[in-house]
């Protein structure tokens, strides 16, 4: 039961309905706007999440280098205070815009919506949002993305997924990053995959190392296939 503001004074206990009393209502509303906009404009939107330092920006740089001649890619990057990551991505040859969250530990759909207004989206095929580095808060905020991709580095624990179940539950693809370091660490891809798939049996898994280039072709081919898939689906319904 939703109570009209004009109705007579509320007394006693009021039972609330789920949709208008969800604390994520405002975010989810903006996320739907984003989803509609990127669909109309034929843009694939990817939300990249991980703990701080797992290699998101480095992956954006490598992805930009390989894909910039094949399609039009742009990056929005969330950061607590600085503009450094956007500069690194621009050096790789694609447009990047920093979303400074001013201390907020996650991006909300509203912030992405405002940032999308500040860049030219005409002709863009692939838009990345590099989220703030943390696996807790960003998990709860839908940004209207087509796919959520989570990095977990070999320098982290391979039992990490179960500590952050919501993130792995809501992700479509897990990239095991810094795989060049595997020989030196106790981390195994099998263990992290099992931990993550206990939560999300549908999760896709790929191994990458941005520094050596391992797995980056496979990742880029995955992206190209998803861009194509979305554009073809749009062409059919148009």
């Amino acid at each position: 039961m939703s109570v009209e503001k004009s109705s007579k004074a509320a007394r006693g206990t009021v039972q609330c309905d789920n949709s208008s009393f969800s604390l994520l209502k405002a975010n989810d509303f903006m996320a739907e706007n984003i989803r509609k906009t990127v669909k109309e404009k034929n843009i694939l939107l990817i939300n990249i999440t991980s703990s701080a330092g797992s290699g998101k920006t480095t992956l954006m740089q490598e992805t930009a280098k390989r894909l910039k001649d094949k399609l039009k890619m742009k990056v929005l990057v969330g950061d607590l205070e600085t503009e450094r990551d956007a500069d690194r991505i621009k050096e790789a040859g694609v447009e990047a815009l920093q979303i400074v969250t001013g201390g907020i530990c996650h991006l909300e759909a509203q912030m992405v919506w405002q940032a999308m207004d500040q860049i030219d989206l005409e002709g863009v095929d692939l838009l990345f949002v590099e989220n703030v580095g943390n696996l807790v808060c960003p998990a709860s905020f839908d940004l209207g993305e087509d796919y959520r991709v989570t990095l977990i580095a070999t320098t982290e624990g391979d039992d990490k997924p179960k500590k952050y179940p919501r993130m792995f539950l809501t992700s479509d693809l897990m990239l095991v990053s810094k795989c060049d370091l595997l020989p030196y660490l106790p981390f195994t891809v099998e263990a992290v995959t099992k931990d993550a798939r206990d939560i999300n049996p549908d999760l896709e898994v790929m191994e990458i190392a941005s520094t050596s280039g391992q797995g980056i072709d496979e990742w880029c081919n995955w992206l190209l296939a998803k861009v194509k898939e979305k554009q073809e689906a749009k062409a059919v319904t148009a």
């Binding site: 509320a10 006693g12 206990t13 009021v14 039972q15 609330c16 789920n18 009393f21 969800s22 604390l23």
Partner: peptide, 12 residues
Amino acid sequence: EELLIERVHFQE
């Protein structure tokens, strides 16, 4: 996954 206000109470 819910995060919502289930009930609110007012003075009678």
